[in-house]
Amino acid sequence: MALVRTENLSKVYNPDTVPVHALRDVSVTIEPGEFTSIVGPSGSGKTTLLNMIGGLDKPSSGKVFINGTDITGMKDSKLIDFRLRNIGFVFQHYNLIPVFTARENISFIMLLQNRDKKEMLSRADELLDKVGLGDRKDARPKEMSGGQQQRVAVARALASEPKFILADEPTANLDSSSAMNLLDIMSRMNKEQNVTFVFSTHDQRVIDRARRVITMVDGAVDSDERRENGNDNEKE
């Protein structure tokens, strides 16, 4: 069964005043283990599509299935819980909790899942080691660089053991070496642990690392290209 499936997804903003067709009949499928990049010019609908798949916004028509579950008609509070258990998020602005340390930021999401305390802390430490921040566990977001914060954000998304991770322009605020470093970590997680990633980007070097590239133009899928060796470009 497909991990994510959209069915004739359309989104019209301001239907009553100045309608903007942000998505037109988008039907895509994402399978477990993919490392997919969504690209396209500004305003082509990348963010809108990711928001629909992530259950953060409702389509005007069409449906979104996650693991076979139709989330389109779900009530707000149920959807929040669904996101908590199934979807990981990485944001352009990192969005860590500023009053929490790196470790606390990662444990927090597991706490929301009501996981065992001990497991939580050891898992947070383990994830911080994996994203190369073993020595910044007690740092607060303000004390970290953008690249470091975004790595904490990826660790946080991984911590909840989601079915897949959505990232809208995760590298947009990073310098290119931090961006590549983040991509290294993401693709390693993808390869080693089969974590599914779907991310949007404008950065050609990031696009080059993807194994599947969905190109959006004017709210519709323009091309959908699979490149089996995509993330093998990793420089070791």
Partner: peptide, 8 residues
């Protein structure tokens, strides 16, 4: 963000 990642 908290509502996005699933804080009730």
């Amino acid at each position: 963000m908290l509502l996005s990642i699933g804080m009730s």
